[in-house]
């Protein structure tokens, strides 16, 4: 079997933070018992704490090839799945009851610092960053599992957990530097994004990609030279891995965000970057400088009416071109295992 790698490019200039991807994934996969608090797809406001809260300080991944210790995130750091006192408030006949999360006023949630960002008015700055499991080429989770319960498929590079072998040790959850593995306290197993394998096998794009109203996500194989992924990652070099320094070689790439000009003391526009380049470099590495220059130059070319293959690729006037070979509709796939219950990932 060929060692092909399916990959995704997420364009942060088109992501509007609406969380439709989060809901598409949630309603498809993580509403089973013990998964109430799981969001396999999250969209966070950056700069911010992210999900789980402060994940970039939780360790894991590699440095100079050496495994780095990590710590387990708590459910409260992912955001507790609040329940609400519907009965009491709506029908309970208590005209003073207030509809709010049961168990007191929360001080953190999955999307608590939405639209806050950093800096000071009028030069504050933020953008949205969707995250899923990166199905890394060198998965830290796979190498950390003492039971070999995590495997990477040859045909598409999707990383899966075999729940029959998993004993809930969660070394994988510590070792993943992106904290994209979730623990099911009811079944005592670790679970994670499976890149919508049952859909992808039938040529249907992942739910987070296909249901994204912002047309933000490109899908395809890394080695498919005339697909959008290859062009954006290798040809134009504008799609960059998040935290390459974690050395897991993630297969989800990001188009870095542009931003409107910042202002001087009088409030007039300056040419200084609104989003500090140092911050973007801390996320995407040094190549982000050149990537941003390319984006600005190609955008200016379009403004002058000149053609730009990069801009046409990012615009993707024909929606279905985003998804490379995965362009079928879920409705047309007979007996889709859309609601796969019970044990998942026992394909191995």
């Amino acid at each position: 079997m060929s060692d092909r790698q399916v990959a995704m490019v997420i364009d942060l200039n088109k992501c509007i933070g609406c969380q439709t991807c989060t809901i598409a994934c949630k309603t498809m996969w993580t509403s089973k018992e013990g998964m109430e608090g799981m969001w396999w797809n999250t969209v966070s406001t950056a700069p911010g704490e992210g999900t789980p809260k402060g994940w970039e300080q939780m360790g894991g991944g590699f440095r100079d090839g050496k495994a780095q210790p990590g710590r387990l995130p708590k459910q409260s750091e992912f955001g507790d799945p609040w329940e609400f006192n519907y009965e009491e408030t709506l029908f309970g006949g208590d005209p003073h009851a207030t509809l709010k999360p049961s168990g007191g006023d929360p001080d953190w949630g999955t999307n608590w610092d939405e639209d806050v960002g950093g800096g000071e008015y009028p030069n504050s700055f933020f953008f949205y960053i969707p995250r899923i499991c990166n199905h890394c080429t060198k998965p830290a989770c796979m190498e950390a599992c003492p039971r070999g319960a995590i495997f990477k498929r040859d045909e598409d590079g999707i990383v899966l957990i075999n729940e029959d072998h998993c004993r809930g040790f969660r070394f994988c959850q510590e070792a993943c530097p992106y904290k994209e593995i979730y623990y099911n306290a009811v079944t005592g197993k670790s679970q994670k994004c499976l890149f919508c394998l049952p859909r992808m096998e039938e040529g249907v794009a992942t739910a987070c990609s296909r249901q994204c109203p912002g047309r933000v996500r490109f899908l395809g194989f890394l080695d498919d030279e005339d697909g959008p992924i290859h062009k954006l990652v290798y040809d134009h070099k504008v799609a960059l891995p998040l935290h390459p320094e974690y050395e897991t070689e993630p297969n989800v790439f990001y188009i870095p965000p542009l931003a409107p000009p910042s202002f001087d003391a009088e409030g007039n526009p300056t040419e200084e970057d609104r989003i500090p380049i140092t911050y973007l470099m801390s996320l995407f590495g040094g190549e982000v400088v050149e990537a941003l220059e390319t984006l600005k130059a190609e955008k200016a070319a379009r403004k002058r009416g000149e053609p730009s293959e990069l801009m046409d690729t990012l615009i993707s006037r024909n929606w279905v071109d985003l998804f490379g070979p995965f362009n079928k509709s879920p409705k047309d796939i007979e007996a889709m295992r859309l609601m796969e219950g019970g044990q998942l990932g026992t394909a191995q």
Binding site: M28, Q211, R317, S329, L338
Partner: peptide, 29 residues
Amino acid sequence: FREEQAAEYQQLRPELPDMNPRGCQKGCC
């Protein structure tokens, strides 16, 4: 049990993006 955008809108003109997929996080649940 679930809903997903149909995404079957035709492109009006080659130089213009089509309307697909539409939908939002509220409609999708």
